[in-house]
Design a protein around this nucleic acid. Structure first.
Length: 588
RNA sequence: GGAGGCGUGGUGUAGAGGCCUAACACGCUGCCCUGUCAAGGCAGAGACCGCGGGUUCGAAUCCCGUCGCUUCCGCCA
């Protein structure tokens, strides 16, 4: 072995021992007569000292030639640092290693960026191009470690509860619904294609028919859609499915998993739970109170409804069918320019009108909309908004209640960010429940499944499934945290007659369904157990535990926004011969 | 497909028509230095300001186009 200890483990108790360390030169401080080097490996930093008193002249000369990121091995004696010289900022700061032998295992070019900081202000594509250097930094190593701990915890937790980890194919079949597929041409079957799975959805349901009962997989999923800060073309889900369970069983399992992980590894990630048990909200309540189906619940600033106040108002915007608002604490100092900006923000979210009221020490300021409202209206709005002097009240009016809620939801999110209302050390997990089973598709004049067509309706709605589809609530559930959707799932339909009603409602002909989902529908005829599952996003959850705002920070080799791997250069052209074998001709 | 932001030595920034022969910090190179830990001191190298047009006596700076990156919208059952 090149080393007897890692660079993170030497303490006072090792003093006197002769040790071997190996790693990278993190920082060097050459005092001419004595050289200090912070030696780094994945486990930490240790200060080593090259002193002419302990090494030959040649060895000292070699020490002087060391540069950043050289790979070296040293042998030496662990000693206490001289009195007053300990470094409390380092885990190994009590000790240092007096080098007696130095070996340069490899030299290194000067890196294109420094390794000894967070790297947050380095151009990201440069970081991605030299990802192997970028990952050397402490922050990135820590992110890899947190991700590993998380996945390891998941495996242990589910194994202890009788789950079986089963791998499913990456080369699978295209599904017309959902996201765009990544296609893989078949060499053996000209003109035919595999598709990479968007998730193992069908396969995990088939595993339930297969009697696996408790399945999970740390599953890679592929979706060919445009990127976001929390979206990559390939990502990882904890894919999970259980038989003979209802909603509560799935919720409790996942809630237990995340609660235990958060608490067991608090020292690692420094996060704590806001809700224990997790908060539960119906979809409708979420939209009414927070205006988003993935609200950030770390702060309040809930939407309020002033429609009862504005009904019959002389003020034109208030003649809309719905008027709701939020109250931004301490924002009465906002200038006209700032509120215009917010109006523009609301417009982007399709809200036509943003009414702004400044709440001064002596009430609503008599300017803009404030000048046009009656005292009764102003008093009633203040009461409803529970606003205090110094606050800014923002109201959105529209005949479409959905627009009002959603625009305010985005405004709330924006204000929460601007005002720094969310505690970075808090995880606000919540379940969103009772989603509508269908959404009305006005263009196609039919009902679309709001989750997917295998999601079961709640039992109490079975009777009105056909007579009033819009009112039906489903056994779908979403897990949200800090403004992100971090997982979703449902209890599935296991009875054929219910499945057929749903297919009829969404306008899916039996023949069509057979072609697309034949294998699944056929399987269900052979004794499908009641089952349901969920798929929490490993990357997004890891982001939250790492405190990262971007999914790329928690993946070793992510793609950039153009879905390219800038390190390897993928995608890339291929040889004509390869195309020929695949029976593919390029159009241009 | 659309909107916003950004693009200046290796890295991150400054610069707002002539003061730019482009500044600063870090990094890099050399020299000095035996207790530093973001070591310090001295000296030095390194950028045709993303690219292409245009306006002007004069453009890093203004205009047009284009490319790249990023955030958001669309999209993501």
């Amino acid at each position: 072995m090149y080393k007897t200890h890692t660079c993170g483990e030497l303490r006072s108790e090792h003093v006197g021992q002769t040790v071997k360390l190996a790693g990278w030169v993190h920082r060097r401080r050459d005092h001419g007569g004595v050289i200090f080097i912070d030696l780094r490996d994945r486990f930490g930093l240790t200060q080593i000292v090259i002193n002419p008193a302990n090494v030959s002249a040649d060895q000292f000369k070699l020490g002087e030639s060391l540069r950043s990121e050289y790979v070296i091995q040293i042998e030496g004696v662990v000693t206490h640092r001289p009195a007053g010289m300990a470094n409390p900022k380092m885990a190994t700061g009590e000790v240092e290693v007096m080098v007696s032998r130095l070996v340069v295992l490899n030299s290194a070019k000067t890196p294109p960026f420094v390794i000894d900081d967070t790297g947050r202000d380095v151009d990201e594509n440069l970081r991605l191009k030299y990802r192997y250097l970028d990952l050397r930094r402490e922050r990135m190593t820590r992110n890899l470690i947190i991700r590993h701990r998380f996945v390891k915890f998941i495996r242990d937790y589910l194994d202890a509860r009788g789950f079986l980890e089963v791998e499913t194919p990456i080369l699978f079949k295209t599904t017309p619904e959902g996201a765009r597929d990544y296609l893989v041409p078949s060499r053996v079957h000209p003109g035919m294609f595999y598709a990479l799975p968007q998730s193992p959805q069908q396969l995990k349901q088939l595993l339930m028919v297969a009697g696996v009962e408790r399945y999970f997989q740390i599953a890679r999923c592929f979706r060919d859609e445009d990127q976001r800060a929390d979206r990559q073309p390939e990502f990882t889900q904890l894919d999970l499915e259980m038989s003979f369970v209802d909603r509560e069983d799935v919720l409790n399992l996942i809630e237990g998993l995340l609660t235990e992980f958060t608490e067991a590894h608090a020292e690692l990630h420094g996060k704590r739970l806001l809700f224990k048990p997790f908060l539960r909200l119906t979809y409708e309540e979420t939209m009414e109170r927070f205006g988003r189906d993935k609200p950030d619940l770390r702060f309040g600033m809930e939407l309020f409804d002033v429609t009862p106040v504005t009904r019959g108002s002389e003020f034109l915007p208030f003649q809309a069918a719905h008027v709701k608002g939020i109250c931004a604490p301490g924002c009465a100092s906002y200038t006209r320019k700032q509120t215009d900006e917010l109006t523009e923000f609301a417009r982007k979210n399709v809200a036509k009108v943003l009414v702004v009221l400044w709440h001064d020490a002596d009430g609503i300021r008599n300017t803009g909309a404030g000048a046009k409202l009656s005292q009764r209206e102003k008093d009633a709005i203040v009461t409803t908004a529970q606003s205090k002097p110094g606050d800014l009240i923002m109201l959105i009016a529209d005949n479409d209640r959905r627009i009002v809620n959603e625009a305010l939801g985005e405004l709330r999110q924006e204000m929460g960010t601007r005002l720094g209302l969310a505690d970075a050390h808090v995880l606000a997990y919540a379940w969103i429940l009772d989603f509508p089973l269908f959404e009305w598709n006005a263009e196609e004049k039919r009902w679309d499944p709001s989750h997917h067509m295998f999601t079961a309706p709640k039992d109490e709605y079975l009777a009105v499934l056909e007579s009033d589809p819009g009112s039906v609530r489903s056994k779908q559930y979403d897990l949200v945290c800090n403004g992100y959707e971090v997982g979703g799932g449902s209890i599935r339909i296991h009875r054929r007659e219910v499945q057929e009603i749903i297919m009829r409602l969404i306008g899916l002909e039996m023949e069509d369904a057979r072609r697309k989902f034949g294998h699944l529908l056929e399987a269900f005829e052979y004794g499908a157990p009641p089952h349901g599952g969920i798929a929490p996003g490993i990357d997004r959850l890891t982001m939250l535990y790492c405190g990262e705002p971007n999914i790329r920070e928690v993946m070793a080799f992510p793609k950039n926004q153009q879905a390219m791997d800038v390190m390897a250069g993928a995608p890339s052209p291929v040889y004509d011969q390869q195309l020929k074998e695949l029976h593919i001709r390029l159009v241009n």
